[in-house]
Amino acid sequence: MYEIVAKEILNKDVDLMVINAPLVARNAKPGHFIILRVDEEGERIPLTITEINGDLVSIIYQKLGYTTRLLGTYNVGDSLSDFVGPLGKAAHIRDVENVLGIAGGVGAAPLLPQLKEYARRGVKVTLVIGARSKYHLILLDKYKEFCDEILIATDDGSLGTKGFVTDVLTELYKTRTFDHTIAIGPLIMMKFVVILNKKHGLKTDVSLNPVMIDGTGMCGNCRVSIGDKTFFACVDGPDFPGEEVNFDELLARQNYYHDEEHICNLRLVKK
Protein backbone atom coordinates (compact mmCIF):
# COMPACT_ATOMS: atom_id res chain seq x y z
CA MET A 1 0.00 0.00 0.00
CA TYR A 2 1.15 3.50 -0.80
CA GLU A 3 0.33 6.16 1.73
CA ILE A 4 -0.88 9.66 0.87
CA VAL A 5 1.23 12.01 2.98
CA ALA A 6 -0.01 15.35 1.67
CA LYS A 7 -2.83 16.68 -0.46
CA GLU A 8 -3.43 20.15 -1.83
CA ILE A 9 -6.49 21.33 -3.71
CA LEU A 10 -5.23 23.41 -6.63
CA ASN A 11 -8.68 24.29 -7.91
CA LYS A 12 -12.15 22.81 -8.04
CA ASP A 13 -11.03 20.19 -10.59
CA VAL A 14 -7.38 19.63 -9.82
CA ASP A 15 -5.55 18.22 -6.78
CA LEU A 16 -1.92 17.63 -5.95
CA MET A 17 -1.03 14.54 -3.96
CA VAL A 18 2.21 13.43 -2.36
CA ILE A 19 2.65 9.67 -2.10
CA ASN A 20 5.21 7.69 -0.16
CA ALA A 21 6.76 5.44 -2.82
CA PRO A 22 10.49 4.90 -2.31
CA LEU A 23 10.95 2.53 -5.25
CA VAL A 24 9.29 4.97 -7.65
CA ALA A 25 11.34 7.87 -6.28
CA ARG A 26 14.64 6.02 -6.44
CA ASN A 27 15.25 6.42 -10.19
CA ALA A 28 12.64 8.99 -11.18
CA LYS A 29 13.54 11.90 -13.48
CA PRO A 30 11.56 14.76 -15.08
CA GLY A 31 9.23 13.36 -17.75
CA HIS A 32 8.69 10.00 -16.06
CA PHE A 33 5.20 8.93 -15.08
CA ILE A 34 3.57 6.41 -12.76
CA ILE A 35 0.57 4.12 -13.02
CA LEU A 36 -1.74 3.80 -10.06
CA ARG A 37 -4.76 1.83 -8.97
CA VAL A 38 -6.82 3.45 -6.27
CA ASP A 39 -8.36 0.26 -4.91
CA GLU A 40 -8.54 -3.47 -5.61
CA GLU A 41 -11.24 -3.08 -8.25
CA GLY A 42 -9.67 -0.02 -9.79
CA GLU A 43 -8.47 0.80 -13.26
CA ARG A 44 -4.77 1.41 -13.86
CA ILE A 45 -4.27 5.06 -14.86
CA PRO A 46 -1.09 6.94 -15.79
CA LEU A 47 -0.10 10.26 -14.20
CA THR A 48 3.07 12.29 -14.61
CA ILE A 49 5.51 12.62 -11.73
CA THR A 50 5.67 16.36 -11.00
CA GLU A 51 8.18 16.34 -8.17
CA ILE A 52 10.43 13.94 -6.30
CA ASN A 53 11.55 14.57 -2.76
CA GLY A 54 13.39 11.74 -1.00
CA ASP A 55 10.93 8.85 -0.89
CA LEU A 56 8.02 11.10 -1.81
CA VAL A 57 6.46 11.43 -5.25
CA SER A 58 4.05 14.21 -6.22
CA ILE A 59 1.27 13.84 -8.76
CA ILE A 60 -1.26 16.37 -10.01
CA TYR A 61 -4.52 15.11 -11.44
CA GLN A 62 -7.58 16.58 -13.02
CA LYS A 63 -10.81 15.02 -11.76
CA LEU A 64 -12.10 14.07 -15.17
CA GLY A 65 -13.70 10.70 -14.86
CA TYR A 66 -14.25 7.77 -12.56
CA THR A 67 -10.73 7.02 -11.38
CA THR A 68 -9.46 10.55 -10.94
CA ARG A 69 -12.66 11.52 -9.13
CA LEU A 70 -12.40 8.50 -6.87
CA LEU A 71 -8.79 9.44 -6.19
CA GLY A 72 -10.03 12.91 -5.23
CA THR A 73 -12.10 11.40 -2.41
CA TYR A 74 -8.93 10.01 -0.81
CA ASN A 75 -7.16 12.02 1.85
CA VAL A 76 -3.94 12.24 3.83
CA GLY A 77 -3.45 9.00 5.76
CA ASP A 78 -5.35 6.90 3.21
CA SER A 79 -3.42 4.51 1.00
CA LEU A 80 -3.56 3.57 -2.68
CA SER A 81 -3.54 -0.08 -3.73
CA ASP A 82 -0.89 0.25 -6.39
CA PHE A 83 1.64 2.83 -7.50
CA VAL A 84 4.32 1.78 -9.96
CA GLY A 85 7.09 3.55 -11.81
CA PRO A 86 9.05 5.42 -12.91
CA LEU A 87 7.66 4.71 -16.39
CA GLY A 88 8.42 6.02 -19.84
CA LYS A 89 11.52 7.76 -21.12
CA ALA A 90 12.75 10.70 -19.13
CA ALA A 91 12.38 14.00 -20.96
CA HIS A 92 15.12 14.69 -23.48
CA ILE A 93 16.49 18.02 -22.31
CA ARG A 94 17.92 19.71 -25.40
CA ASP A 95 20.93 21.92 -25.66
CA VAL A 96 19.22 25.22 -26.56
CA GLU A 97 19.31 28.85 -25.47
CA ASN A 98 15.63 29.58 -25.26
CA VAL A 99 12.63 27.33 -25.00
CA LEU A 100 8.90 27.88 -25.22
CA GLY A 101 6.56 25.75 -23.11
CA ILE A 102 2.89 25.60 -24.05
CA ALA A 103 0.51 24.18 -21.44
CA GLY A 104 -3.19 23.47 -21.81
CA GLY A 105 -5.34 22.65 -18.77
CA VAL A 106 -3.82 19.98 -16.57
CA GLY A 107 -0.95 19.71 -19.11
CA ALA A 108 0.62 22.37 -16.91
CA ALA A 109 1.46 19.56 -14.48
CA PRO A 110 3.60 17.33 -16.72
CA LEU A 111 5.22 20.39 -18.32
CA LEU A 112 6.40 21.81 -15.00
CA PRO A 113 9.32 19.45 -14.21
CA GLN A 114 10.62 19.70 -17.78
CA LEU A 115 10.62 23.51 -17.93
CA LYS A 116 12.09 23.69 -14.45
CA GLU A 117 14.97 21.51 -15.61
CA TYR A 118 15.60 23.87 -18.56
CA ALA A 119 15.58 26.84 -16.21
CA ARG A 120 17.98 25.09 -13.86
CA ARG A 121 20.38 24.76 -16.78
CA GLY A 122 20.19 28.47 -17.45
CA VAL A 123 17.96 28.28 -20.53
CA LYS A 124 15.60 31.21 -21.09
CA VAL A 125 12.09 29.87 -20.46
CA THR A 126 8.87 31.32 -21.86
CA LEU A 127 5.50 29.84 -20.93
CA VAL A 128 2.17 30.14 -22.69
CA ILE A 129 -0.50 28.67 -20.47
CA GLY A 130 -4.18 28.24 -21.27
CA ALA A 131 -7.26 27.11 -19.41
CA ARG A 132 -11.03 27.49 -19.40
CA SER A 133 -10.99 30.35 -16.88
CA LYS A 134 -8.67 31.90 -14.33
CA TYR A 135 -10.01 29.39 -11.79
CA HIS A 136 -8.77 26.55 -13.93
CA LEU A 137 -5.22 27.82 -14.29
CA ILE A 138 -2.94 25.71 -12.13
CA LEU A 139 0.62 25.97 -10.83
CA LEU A 140 1.03 29.62 -11.89
CA ASP A 141 2.90 30.42 -8.68
CA LYS A 142 5.31 27.54 -9.20
CA TYR A 143 5.94 28.59 -12.80
CA LYS A 144 6.53 32.20 -11.73
CA GLU A 145 9.45 31.00 -9.62
CA PHE A 146 11.55 30.18 -12.67
CA CYS A 147 9.94 31.35 -15.95
CA ASP A 148 11.34 34.43 -17.62
CA GLU A 149 8.01 35.26 -19.15
CA ILE A 150 4.45 33.96 -18.81
CA LEU A 151 1.57 34.59 -21.24
CA ILE A 152 -1.94 33.52 -20.34
CA ALA A 153 -5.00 32.58 -22.39
CA THR A 154 -8.43 31.80 -20.94
CA ASP A 155 -11.48 30.70 -22.90
CA ASP A 156 -13.67 33.25 -21.08
CA GLY A 157 -11.12 36.05 -20.87
CA SER A 158 -11.14 36.06 -17.05
CA LEU A 159 -7.35 36.37 -17.11
CA GLY A 160 -4.91 37.15 -19.92
CA THR A 161 -5.98 36.97 -23.55
CA LYS A 162 -9.51 35.75 -24.26
CA GLY A 163 -9.11 32.72 -26.51
CA PHE A 164 -6.90 29.66 -26.98
CA VAL A 165 -3.17 29.27 -26.58
CA THR A 166 -2.94 29.23 -30.37
CA ASP A 167 -4.30 32.80 -30.41
CA VAL A 168 -1.58 33.92 -28.02
CA LEU A 169 1.05 32.06 -30.04
CA THR A 170 -0.04 33.67 -33.30
CA GLU A 171 0.54 37.09 -31.71
CA LEU A 172 3.79 36.03 -30.10
CA TYR A 173 5.31 34.64 -33.31
CA LYS A 174 4.88 38.03 -34.99
CA THR A 175 7.84 39.30 -33.02
CA ARG A 176 9.59 36.30 -31.52
CA THR A 177 11.11 32.97 -32.31
CA PHE A 178 12.36 30.07 -30.22
CA ASP A 179 14.99 27.35 -30.46
CA HIS A 180 12.56 24.70 -29.29
CA THR A 181 8.95 24.30 -28.14
CA ILE A 182 7.17 21.77 -25.94
CA ALA A 183 3.39 21.50 -25.94
CA ILE A 184 1.46 19.49 -23.36
CA GLY A 185 -2.29 19.50 -23.01
CA PRO A 186 -5.41 17.97 -24.52
CA LEU A 187 -4.73 16.14 -27.80
CA ILE A 188 -6.77 18.61 -29.77
CA MET A 189 -4.71 21.52 -28.43
CA MET A 190 -1.43 19.76 -29.23
CA LYS A 191 -2.69 19.00 -32.73
CA PHE A 192 -3.40 22.67 -33.49
CA VAL A 193 -0.23 23.94 -31.82
CA VAL A 194 1.81 21.59 -34.02
CA ILE A 195 0.00 22.81 -37.17
CA LEU A 196 0.65 26.43 -36.23
CA ASN A 197 4.27 25.83 -35.24
CA LYS A 198 4.97 24.01 -38.50
CA LYS A 199 3.86 27.15 -40.36
CA HIS A 200 6.44 29.10 -38.38
CA GLY A 201 9.15 26.54 -38.92
CA LEU A 202 9.21 25.59 -35.24
CA LYS A 203 9.71 22.06 -33.94
CA THR A 204 7.29 20.90 -31.25
CA ASP A 205 7.73 18.11 -28.74
CA VAL A 206 4.42 16.79 -27.49
CA SER A 207 3.56 14.48 -24.61
CA LEU A 208 0.99 11.91 -25.68
CA ASN A 209 -1.61 10.49 -23.34
CA PRO A 210 -3.17 7.39 -24.85
CA VAL A 211 -5.07 4.92 -22.69
CA MET A 212 -2.63 2.59 -20.94
CA ILE A 213 -2.82 -0.61 -18.95
CA ASP A 214 0.50 -2.13 -17.92
CA GLY A 215 2.87 0.71 -18.85
CA THR A 216 5.74 -1.68 -19.60
CA GLY A 217 5.27 -2.35 -23.31
CA MET A 218 3.28 -5.56 -22.85
CA CYS A 219 -0.27 -4.81 -24.00
CA GLY A 220 -0.02 -2.43 -26.95
CA ASN A 221 -3.04 -0.42 -25.82
CA CYS A 222 -0.96 2.76 -25.83
CA ARG A 223 0.21 2.51 -29.42
CA VAL A 224 0.39 5.62 -31.55
CA SER A 225 1.13 6.09 -35.25
CA ILE A 226 3.95 8.48 -35.98
CA GLY A 227 4.76 8.80 -39.65
CA ASP A 228 4.38 5.25 -40.93
CA LYS A 229 5.69 3.71 -37.71
CA THR A 230 3.94 2.47 -34.59
CA PHE A 231 5.28 3.34 -31.14
CA PHE A 232 4.22 2.24 -27.68
CA ALA A 233 3.85 5.52 -25.80
CA CYS A 234 4.49 3.93 -22.39
CA VAL A 235 8.02 2.82 -23.23
CA ASP A 236 8.98 4.80 -26.35
CA GLY A 237 7.40 8.01 -25.02
CA PRO A 238 5.34 9.67 -23.74
CA ASP A 239 7.26 12.55 -25.39
CA PHE A 240 7.49 12.51 -29.19
CA PRO A 241 8.26 15.00 -31.94
CA GLY A 242 4.78 16.29 -32.78
CA GLU A 243 5.16 16.83 -36.52
CA GLU A 244 4.19 13.37 -37.70
CA VAL A 245 1.87 12.22 -34.91
CA ASN A 246 -1.48 10.95 -36.21
CA PHE A 247 -3.60 12.94 -33.73
CA ASP A 248 -6.93 11.98 -35.29
CA GLU A 249 -6.27 8.28 -34.89
CA LEU A 250 -5.15 8.84 -31.31
CA LEU A 251 -8.28 10.88 -30.56
CA ALA A 252 -10.39 7.97 -31.81
CA ARG A 253 -8.45 5.54 -29.64
CA GLN A 254 -8.82 7.77 -26.59
CA ASN A 255 -12.57 8.03 -27.05
CA TYR A 256 -13.16 4.35 -27.76
CA TYR A 257 -14.45 3.63 -24.28
CA HIS A 258 -16.39 6.85 -23.91
CA ASP A 259 -19.76 5.17 -23.21
CA GLU A 260 -18.25 2.77 -20.70
CA GLU A 261 -16.50 5.62 -18.88
CA HIS A 262 -19.90 7.22 -18.51
CA ILE A 263 -21.36 4.04 -16.97
CA CYS A 264 -18.46 3.93 -14.53
CA ASN A 265 -19.10 7.51 -13.50
CA LEU A 266 -22.69 6.71 -12.62
CA ARG A 267 -21.31 4.16 -10.21
CA LEU A 268 -19.30 6.84 -8.46
CA VAL A 269 -22.47 8.77 -7.76
CA LYS A 270 -23.81 5.68 -5.98
CA LYS A 271 -20.62 5.07 -4.00
Binding site: G42, T67, E260, C264
Partner: peptide, 25 residues
Amino acid sequence: YANEFLTRVNLMKSHHFPQSATPVK
Protein backbone atom coordinates in the same frame (compact mmCIF):
# COMPACT_ATOMS: atom_id res chain seq x y z
CA TYR B 1 -3.37 -7.38 -29.42
CA ALA B 2 -4.32 -10.49 -27.48
CA ASN B 3 -2.22 -9.29 -24.55
CA GLU B 4 -4.34 -6.18 -24.15
CA PHE B 5 -7.60 -8.03 -24.61
CA LEU B 6 -6.72 -10.87 -22.23
CA THR B 7 -5.15 -8.53 -19.67
CA ARG B 8 -8.31 -6.43 -19.60
CA VAL B 9 -10.33 -9.54 -18.82
CA ASN B 10 -8.03 -11.75 -16.74
CA LEU B 11 -6.00 -9.20 -14.78
CA MET B 12 -8.38 -6.24 -14.74
CA LYS B 13 -11.58 -8.34 -14.51
CA SER B 14 -13.39 -6.34 -17.16
CA HIS B 15 -15.99 -9.11 -17.49
CA HIS B 16 -17.21 -7.79 -14.13
CA PHE B 17 -17.47 -4.21 -15.39
CA PRO B 18 -18.61 -1.84 -13.94
CA GLN B 19 -18.03 -3.55 -10.57
CA SER B 20 -14.47 -3.66 -11.79
CA ALA B 21 -13.61 -0.30 -13.34
CA THR B 22 -11.79 -1.44 -16.49
CA PRO B 23 -14.08 -1.91 -19.52
CA VAL B 24 -13.68 -4.14 -22.55
CA LYS B 25 -15.85 -4.33 -25.64
